[in-house]
Write a protein that binds this DNA or RNA. Structure first.
Length: 653
RNA sequence: GCCGCAGUAGCUCAGUGGUAGAGCAACGCAUUCGUAAUGCGUGGGUCGGGGGUUCAAAUCCCUUCUGCGGCACCA
C-alpha cells in the first residue's frame, strides 16, 4: 500500500489515515458508540459500504442508521431480504431487480404462479426471521464470465442477462447475506439486522421486464420500509388520509361528477361539478385575454386528409377515434359500416385546426406573434388500463393555445408563457411544481438539426428564468421538445398538467407562412402551450390538493342559508334572495330538521359558509355565520355579511 | 393493451351450495328544536352480463364487461 491519505470530516477537520482504511475503522477511531451506530459511509457525496477500503484523499461523512441518508439503504436491503425470503419459500422463482424507491422498495420476480395476499403475509414473516438472523452483508468482486455462468447454472436467466448487458468497464459485484447472494452494485448496511422491523409488504403488481411491453411480464412486490415503527405508522396513516381525498370518492360524495361504463373515460359533469368547471374556465379565459390571446373554436370531426398532412395519422393514429364518413347501414342484417368509406377522426389535438385559421389570408411579420386559444374538446383513445378518474380521460378539454411567432420571438414568448403559468399556479396555491424538459423521441418528425435548435432554445429560456428543471430524454412530442409541468396527487403520484412545446415541424407540414420584412415567405414557429393542461385533470388534482374544500370562488355552493325553526322561513328567503342578487351561489335549507343536522350535512358537503337564521336573526336583521371547519359563530348584520362574502367570492383574477 | 384483485340496494359493506341482509340515504308520519346525525314506520335487488355444473348457484366452473392497484403509454 502507498502512503497515508487525507480524510476530510464534515466539521472541516482533516486527518491522515493509512491507505486502505475503512469507514468502520475511522468510526472506531472516533468512538465506539459511533462505530456501533454507523451503517455506511458518504465518500465525496456517494454512499459506500462501511467496510470498503479508502485509497485516496476524500471528504467523508459517517452515516448512522438514524440519518435520513440511511433510509435508502434500509429500503434497498429490505428488497434483498424480501428476495431471499421469496426464494426460500418459493424455490424456482427467479430474481431480477429490486431497487429502493420513494417510501419503500420493490422486487421483480419471475414465477409461473402469481403471489396472493396470503403469500405476502408469509413472505413478510420470513423477512422478519431473516432480519433477526442478522447475517453480515459481504461484497465480493466476481469475474464477469464466471458470474454469468454461475447465474445461468442456477437458472437465473434474467440476472445473467443483466450482467451480459453491463458495460465492460463495470466491476461485477455480488453481495452475500449468509447462504443467499445477489448481483448488486451496493452499497449495503453492515448486516440484515440493521434493516429493522419497520417494514410492510404493500401489494403485488405486474411489471414488464426492463420496462418493455414486448417482453415478459414479471411479478412485482411493493413494500414500504422506515427507520422505526413510528415512521412506518405515520406513513400508513398518511395513506389512509390520502384515500379520503381521492377525487373520485369526493366527486361522488359532493355530487360533482360521475363516470359510467357506457362512456368509459369520459366525465358526466353534474351541476355542482360543472359550476367549478365553468368558474375555472372563466378564470383562465380572463387570464388569456389579458395576456394578448384571441379565442377560436374549431371542428370536432376532421377528414383524415388533414391528419395525414399533419403527421398525426402516421405518428398518433393509435390514440385517435376514427369515424367513417358514410351513412350507416340501417338493415338488420349486414355490417353497419361498409369499411370502404373515407375516414374522419375526432380531433385528438387542436393544433392542425389552428394552423388552418392561421393560413386563411396572408400574414405579415407585423401580425406576429398570434396567440390563438381554444377550449377545444379533444378525444384520445387511451388504453383501458390507463384510465384513471379525471386524471386520465378519453374526452378532455385543454386550456390550449398556439402561439405563432418568428424565431427571434421564441425566447420572449416562452418566457412570457412561463411567467403567466406561475402567476396562475400561485392563484391555486400549488407549491410543488416540477419542470421537465422532454427531448426528441425515437418516433419523430423533423431533422436532427431542427431538434438541436429547438431543444437548445427551450433549455436557454428556463435558464434565463432561473428555474430548475430535469431532462426527460425521449419524452418529447413527435413534432418538438416540450416542458412538462408536473403536479402530485393525494398519494404522491405525479401528473403532467401544463405544457409548452416548441414546434418547427407542423407549420412546415401544413404550409404556414408569413411575409417577412424582406418581402419573402417565412415559416412561423409554433408554440403549443397549456397552463392548466386539461380542465379535467387539473380539477381532479385541485380537489385532492384541497381535500374537497374548494376556495370560495370555485366552490359550487358558496353559502347555505339554514333556518333553526320555520318561524324564520320568510326572513331566510329574503337572505337567500339578497345573496343571489349579490352574485353569490347560495342555497336555502328550510327543511324541518334540527340545526345540528343541517350543520353536519352542509359541512360534510364542504359548503364554505353557512348563514344560520332563527327568530333572533329575523328580528335583528342579522345572520349567524358559520364557516366550514370552524366551531365559532359570528353574528353579523345582513348587509355587511353579504358584502363581505361577495368580496371573498371574487376570483383571484 | 399486460399482470393481479374486485363487482351484492343510491352509498359503505355482511352474506362459502338450501326463502337476499345491515347501517346511512330515499319516502311517510310525528317532532319546531340555537350550530357536525330527533324518533317511529315504509318501499327499494335480474347479487355486473352471458354460458355451464347441480334437485338447488350471490356462493362452484368457463367466458365477457367494468372498476381498483401497478406496468406500458400519456395531458
Amino acid at each position: 500500500m502507498s502512503g497515508p491519505i487525507r480524510i476530510a470530516f464534515p466539521d472541516g477537520s482533516m486527518r491522515e489515515f493509512p491507505s486502505g482504511v475503512t469507514g468502520l475503522e475511522i468510526a472506531e477511531s472516533i468512538s465506539a458508540s459511533l462505530a456501533k451506530a454507523a451503517v455506511a459511509l458518504d465518500v465525496d457525496g456517494t454512499l459506500t459500504d462501511l467496510t470498503r477500503p479508502l485509497t485516496q484523499d476524500c471528504a467523508i461523512k459517517i452515516v448512522r442508521r438514524d440519518d435520513e441518508a440511511a433510509l435508502e439503504l434500509i429500503r434497498h436491503d429490505a428488497a434483498h431480504v424480501m428476495a431471499e425470503a421469496v426464494q426460500q419459500l418459493y424455490p424456482g422463482t427467479q430474481v431480477t431487480i429490486g431497487p429502493s424507491i420513494e417510501n419503500g422498495f420493490y422486487y421483480d420476480f419471475a414465477r409461473e404462479t402469481p403471489f396472493s395476499s396470503e403469500d405476502l403475509e408469509k413472505i413478510e414473516q420470513r423477512m422478519h426471521e431473516i432480519v433477526d438472523r442478522g447475517e453480515t452483508f459481504t461484497c465480493e468482486v466476481w469475474d464477469r464470465k464466471e458470474a454469468i455462468a454461475f447465474f445461468e447454472e442456477k437458472g437465473e436467466v434474467y440476472k445473467a442477462e443483466l450482467i451480459t448487458d453491463l458495460p465492460e468497464s463495470e466491476t461485477i459485484t455480488v453481495y452475500r447475506q449468509g447462504e443467499w447472494l445477489d448481483l448488486c452494485r451496493g452499497p449495503h448496511l453492515p448486516t440484515t439486522k440493521h434493516v429493522g422491523h419497520a417494514f410492510k409488504l404493500m401489494n403485488v403488481a405486474g411489471a414488464y421486464w426492463r420496462g418493455d411491453s414486448s417482453r415478459a411480464m414479471l411479478t412485482r412486490i411493493y413494500g414500504t420500509a422506515w427507520r422505526n415503527e413510528k415512521e412506518l405508522q405515520a406513513y400508513l396513516t398518511m395513506l389512509e388520509e390520502a384515500e379520503k381525498r381521492d377525487h373520485r370518492k369526493l366527486g361522488r360524495e359532493m355530487d360533482l361528477y360521475h363516470f359510467q361504463e357506457e362512456a368509459q373515460g369520459s366525465c358526466f359533469w353534474h351541476p355542482k361539478g360543472y359550476t367549478i368547471y365553468l368558474a375555472l374556465e372563466a378564470y383562465i379565459r380572463r387570464r388569456l385575454r389579458d395576456a394578448g390571446y384571441v379565442e377560436v373554436k374549431t371542428p370536432q370531426l376532421i377528414d383524415n386528409k388533414l391528419w395525414v398532412a399533419s403527421g398525426h395519422w402516421g405518428k398518433f393514429r393509435e390514440n385517435m377515434f376514427v369515424v367513417p364518413d358514410e351513412v350507416p347501414n340501417t338493415e338488420d342484417e349486414g355490417p353497419v359500416i361498409s369499411g370502404e368509406a373515407n375516414l374522419m377522426a375526432l380531433k385528438p389535438m387542436n393544433c392542425p385546426a389552428h394552423i388552418q385559421i392561421f393560413n386563411q389570408g396572408i400574414k405579415s411579420y407585423r401580425d406576429l406573434p398570434i396567440r390563438m386559444a381554444e377550449f377545444g374538446c379533444c378525444h384520445r383513445n387511451e388504453a383501458h388500463g390507463a384510465l384513471h378518474g379525471l386524471m386520465r380521460v378519453r374526452q378532455m378539454t385543454q386550456d390550449d393555445a398556439h402561439i405563432f411567432c418568428r424565431e427571434d420571438q421564441i425566447t420572449q414568448e416562452v418566457k412570457a408563457f412561463v411567467e403567466l403559468f406561475y402567476a396562475c399556479y400561485r392563484d391555486f396555491g400549488f407549491e410543488e411544481i416540477q419542470i421537465k424538459l422532454a427531448t426528441r423521441p425515437e418516433v419523430r418528425a423533423g431533422s436532427d438539426e431542427v431538434w438541436d435548435r429547438a431543444e437548445k432554445a427551450m433549455a436557454d429560456a428556463l435558464e434565463v428564468l432561473g428555474l430548475p428543471f430535469e431532462y426527460a430524454p425521449g419524452d418529447g412530442a413527435f413534432y418538438g421538445p416540450k416542458y412538462e409541468f408536473h403536479l402530485k396527487d393525494a398519494i404522491g403520484r405525479s401528473w403532467q398538467c401544463g405544457t409548452c412545446q416548441l414546434d418547427f415541424v407542423l407549420p412546415e407540414r401544413l404550409g404556414a407562412t408569413y411575409i417577412g420584412e424582406d418581402g419573402a415567405k417565412h415559416r412561423p414557429v409554433m408554440i403549443h402551450r397549456a397552463i392548466l393542461g386539461t380542465l379535467e385533470r387539473f380539477i381532479g388534482l385541485f380537489i385532492e390538493n384541497c381535500a374537497g374544500k374548494l376556495p370560495l370562488w370555485l366552490a359550487s355552493v358558496q353559502c347555505v342559508v339554514a333556518t333553526i325553526t320555520s318561524d324564520a322561513d320568510g326572513y331566510a328567503r329574503q337572505v337567500h334572495d339578497a345573496l343571489r342578487a349579490a352574485g353569490i351561489r347560495a342555497e336555502l335549507d328550510l327543511r324541518n330538521e334540527k340545526i345540528n343536522y343541517k350543520v353536519r350535512e352542509h359541512s360534510v358537503q364542504k359548503v364554505p359558509a353557512m348563514f344560520v337564521v332563527g327568530k333572533r336573526e329575523a328580528e335583528e336583521r342579522t345572520v349567524a355565520i358559520r364557516r366550514l371547519g370552524e366551531q365559532a359563530q359570528n353574528v353579523v348584520g345582513l348587509d355587511k355579511a353579504i358584502g363581505d362574502l361577495a368580496l371573498e367570492c371574487q376570483p383571484p383574477y
